[in-house]
């Protein structure tokens, strides 16, 4: 028995090391001083917060961070609201066209995003959305929606809807039944979906570099590739690393606190869809 435990423990360790090394490495780089940054050591010899101080002093990064957060939150909010409505209909109502909607969202989930880049580039330029927040929010909502619809309809199907009847029998109005019984049960699913959609928006790179051209709406992943460090002649490695660590923090927090939910959201949405 203990032998088996050691074996599993070893396998766990392999997975954990494999998963963490690139993250620890970029974190390590971000704490290195300019002098030691090219020494190739995995653990910094001299620790410094200089890189962080520098990036927060550049408008380039702060602006991008604001863009990333704002665009991510708005896209998530809209996608989750629209997705919740559609998923409720899919899980609970019977209407023609339901299959079609599921089919469309599946198609979009598999859509090659680069195929949208050229027409969107041209369309957004002609209607003035290019290099604006809405210009990124729109495609993010579009690609976030299939994810939201799948995950949420799987969640909604698991809600015991008998409870709605029970609440009505207990004297609740339709509104009370929803507010006091259904909503508390649906909330975790909606929350998990919001996390997944936000991660998607937070991650995107292709739309971010194609549909923006200035700091006005460039998000952090896109800004990273334009990074030149505090001054033009400085090696940007430290700055890039520090910025990378900053935008990894929310992901780490989500994963740490909501591991169980993210796992169940991803698996139920993708397999049982």
């Amino acid at each position: 028995m203990t032998g088996a435990k050691w074996r599993w423990g070893f396998l766990d360790l392999v997975v954990i090391v494999f998963a963490l090394i690139p993250v620890l490495w970029i974190a390590s780089l971000s704490f290195k001083t300019p002098a030691t940054i090219t020494d190739g050591d995995f653990i910094p010899r001299e620790w410094t917060l200089e890189n962080y101080r520098n990036i927060f002093n550049t408008d380039q990064f702060v602006r991008a961070l604001v863009n990333s957060i704002g665009i991510g939150l708005i896209s998530t909010l809209v996608a989750v609201v629209l997705g919740t409505m559609a998923a409720y209909a899919i899980a609970r109502l019977d209407f023609p066209g339901k299959k079609l909607l599921i089919g469309i969202s599946l198609l979009i989930a598999m859509f090659p995003q680069v195929s949208l880049v050229s027409p969107l580039f041209e369309i957004e330029r002609s209607i003035g959305l290019f290099d604006t927040w809405p210009g990124l929010i729109l495609p993010y909502i579009t690609f976030g929606l299939p994810l939201a619809i799948y995950t949420l309809s799987a969640f909604f199907r698991q809600i015991p809807w008998d409870l709605e009847k029970a609440a009505k029998m207990d004297g609740a109005t339709q509104g009370e039944a929803f507010r006091r019984v259904i909503a508390p049960l649906a909330a975790p699913g909606v929350f998990t979906t919001a996390i997944l959609v936000f991660i998607f928006c937070w991650n995107d790179f292709l739309f971010a570099i194609s549909l923006t051209s200035t700091e006005r709406s460039r998000t952090v992943p896109a800004a990273l590739s334009f990074f030149q460090g505090a001054s033009q002649f400085e090696d940007p490695t430290g700055a890039i690393s520090a910025a990378a660590v900053i935008i990894t923090i929310p992901i780490i927090l989500f994963v740490l606190f909501f591991q169980r939910r993210i796992v169940s959201g991803l698996t139920s949405g993708a397999v049982k869809g």
Partner: peptide
């Protein structure tokens, strides 16, 4: 796994969640 199931699942989610560009730079 018999030990640390939550831990190993959490660790495995990090590559999934991390921004691709960040990982690429790493």
């Amino acid at each position: 796994t018999l030990v640390g199931r939550g831990l190993v699942r959490t660790a495995a989610l990090i590559p999934y969640g991390i921004v691709t560009v960040v990982a690429a730079f790493s």
